[in-house]
Amino acid sequence: MTEPPLPAPDARRAELAANLARVRARIDAACASAGRDPAGVTMVAVTKTYPAGDVALLAGLGVRDVGENRDQEAAPKAAKVAAAGARVRWHFVGQLQRNKARSVVRYADLVHSVDSVRLAGALAEAARRQRQHPLEVLVQVNLDGAADRGGALVTGGDPGRRVAEVAAAVAGQDSLRLAGVMAVAPLGADPEPAFATLAEVAAGLRAEHPGAMVVSAGMSGDLEAAIAYGATHVRIGSALLGMRSTLR
């Protein structure tokens, strides 16, 4: 089946602008319901499978935070965006293998998905060799126990994959900065209990590491619940970019 042609840049910009306005209105309404200042919530535009041109258009609309979940797509896209003169803050939000650490640290400003002591060590070594400033890192928290979802466990399991131990490993590295936590709500379930648990984990982490203020939670379908439970960053893909699935 042939993919439909890409819209003209002006049409795509108008589409993105309309979607952006709707997402920002949802964030504003969620913050009003939670008694929070919308300035305390950062929208990360997750542009996986979308072209560098969309990132440049979003940057022109005032979006400064962009997320990717696969290094093999993110690395060349970041280079294209930089070459186009668009300045954005790159978030790596997908599961990360240690052998990709050297690539990711070249462009990522914040890695959301550190879930093991070994991965923290690989990122620290890569960042020490290739960066002038510490790499910001979030500990990904597993909220449902599903191994294929990634994330460190709050209790039990391998000590090298527990939240407290991973956080300590990150905090102990000069080339990394522990910024907070990230999680994905369990699929097909009410997200509120998961986000309530994440809020408790985040509070416990801040007690040990006061600078770890970021809570990355919520996507297009559940951003309201995430904001109600203290999310500082929401990762928005389809609500902003639509459902087109092929990278051009």
Rank of each mutant, 00 (worst) to 15 (best):
D37P: 04
D37Y: 11
D37F: 08
P38I: 10
P38G: 07
A39N: 03
A39C: 04
A39Y: 03
A39P: 03
A39H: 11
G40S: 13
V44H: 04
V44L: 13
V46M: 14
V46C: 11
T47I: 09
T47F: 09
T47C: 13
K48Y: 10
K48L: 11
T49P: 07
Y50I: 00
Y50Q: 15
Y50L: 13
A52H: 10
G53R: 11
G53H: 08
G53A: 13
D54G: 03
D54F: 05
V55F: 09
V55H: 08
V55N: 10
V55G: 08
A56W: 00
A56D: 11
L57S: 13
L57C: 02
L57A: 15
L58S: 04
L58A: 08
A59G: 12
A59S: 13
G60S: 09
G60P: 10
L61D: 06
L61W: 04
G62Q: 09
G62Y: 09
G62R: 11
V63E: 15
D65V: 00
D65K: 00
D65F: 03
V66K: 10
V66H: 04
G67M: 04
G67V: 03
E68K: 06
E68W: 08
E68D: 13
E68C: 11
E68T: 04
N69I: 03
N69M: 06
D71R: 11
D71K: 00
D71I: 03
D71T: 05
A74Y: 09
A74W: 07
A75M: 06
A75G: 06
A75I: 00
P76T: 08
A78E: 01
A79F: 00
A79R: 14
A79L: 10
A79N: 01
K80P: 00
A82S: 12
A83N: 00
A84W: 03
A84K: 01
A84L: 15
G85N: 12
A86K: 06
A86Y: 05
R87L: 10
R87T: 14
V88Y: 10
V88A: 09
W90P: 04
F92P: 02
V93G: 04
V93R: 08
G94I: 05
Q95L: 14
R98E: 12
R98T: 15
N99A: 12
N99R: 15
N99L: 07
N99D: 14
A101E: 06
A101M: 07
R102A: 15
R102N: 10
R102G: 12
R102E: 13
S103D: 14
S103I: 04
S103A: 14
V104I: 14
V104P: 06
V104H: 08
R106N: 00
R106P: 00
R106C: 01
D109V: 00
D109Y: 01
L110K: 05
H112C: 01
